[in-house]
């Protein structure tokens, strides 16, 4: 009998963001359920807010912000 896994999100993003999500998952396992391709993966829906917060923090660290 096949198994149904509920509460997932299919995330579509650019490869850079995908890699960041994989890095977050390494430090805090259980986020990524399945890698699909360079721009898509399945993640646990309950971890969405954590992913979002971590991504914003990491992208901010890697970005020079030019202020006028």
């Amino acid at each position: 009998m096949p198994r149904a896994q509920k509460g997932l999100l299919l995330v579509e993003c650019d490869p850079t963001v995908k890699q960041l999500i994989l890095n977050i998952d390494e430090k805090s396992p259980g986020i990524v359920i399945e890698e699909i391709d360079d721009e898509r993966l399945l993640v646990n829906e309950h971890r969405l807010e954590q992913i979002k917060a971590e991504l914003e923090r990491r992208l901010e660290e890697n970005t020079y912000q030019i202020e006028d």
């Binding site: 009998m1 096949p2 198994r3 149904a4 997932l8 963001v17 359920i33 991504l55």
Partner: peptide, 23 residues
């Protein structure tokens, strides 16, 4: 469908269910 902007990167997330373990 969840959508949000991350700097210049857009992320789209579609809720759903995964079916696996077909014999």
């Amino acid at each position: 469908i969840y959508l949000w902007e991350l700097e210049k990167n857009r992320l789209k997330a579609t809720p759903g269910i995964l079916f696996r373990d077909f014999l």
